Lab assay of single mutants.
Amino acid sequence: KLCLVCSDEASGCHYGVLTCGSCKVFFKRAVEGQHNYLCAGRNDCIIDKIRRKNCPACRYRKCLQAGMNLEARKTK
């Protein structure tokens, strides 16, 4: 099974979405830290295992598009 954000090996369902541990922690920190990420490109950066750290804005956008939600952990 692959992470729906970066296509690395998924470690489980986190915040409602099948993700790897790295994307799970990234999403939690992004939401709780209330980061205002900005993409230096055109908001279409490739997010994969190798390049997932290059653009936090696009990675966060991809987390949201996949359906990640901090509240999902509280309902399970």
Rank of each mutant, 00 (worst) to 15 (best):
K74G: 12
K53G: 14
R61P: 01
C58R: 00
N54Q: 12
A72Y: 13
I46K: 15
G67R: 03
D8K: 04
K1H: 04
K53M: 12
G67H: 03
C39K: 01
C3S: 01
I46P: 09
K53Q: 13
L4N: 12
C58K: 00
Y60G: 01
I50M: 15
A40S: 07
R29C: 07
G12W: 05
V31A: 10
K76N: 14
E32N: 08
P56T: 08
G12Q: 10
P56R: 07
N43H: 07
V17G: 05
A72H: 09
K76Q: 15
D44G: 05
L38A: 13
V25Q: 13
S7G: 13
N69M: 11
D44W: 03
Q65G: 08
Y15G: 06
Y60D: 00
R29D: 13
K76V: 12
K53N: 09
C23R: 08
H14R: 05
D44S: 07
S11E: 15
G33S: 09
Y60S: 03
V17L: 05
L18Q: 07
L18H: 11
K24G: 11
C13A: 11
C13Q: 12
Q65R: 09
L18Y: 15
D48Q: 03
C6E: 00
V5Q: 00
R29I: 13
L64N: 07
T19C: 15
G33Q: 11
Y60M: 08
A66L: 10
Q65T: 07
G33M: 09
E9F: 06
F26T: 00
G33H: 12
N43E: 13
L38K: 14
T75S: 13
A30K: 05
G21R: 07
D48T: 09
K1V: 04
N43V: 04
G16N: 12
C55G: 01
V5P: 00
S11I: 13
C20W: 01
D8M: 04
R42G: 13
Q65F: 09
C3Q: 02
E9C: 15
G16R: 03
F27W: 08
N54S: 07
C20G: 01
D8H: 04
T75M: 12
K49V: 14
A30G: 04
N54F: 08
V31D: 04
A30D: 02
A30M: 15
L70R: 14
E9Q: 11
E32I: 06
Y15F: 08
Q34W: 05
I50N: 11
K1M: 14
V17P: 04
S11F: 06
P56D: 15
C63W: 00
N36V: 06
A40M: 08
R29A: 11
N36S: 14
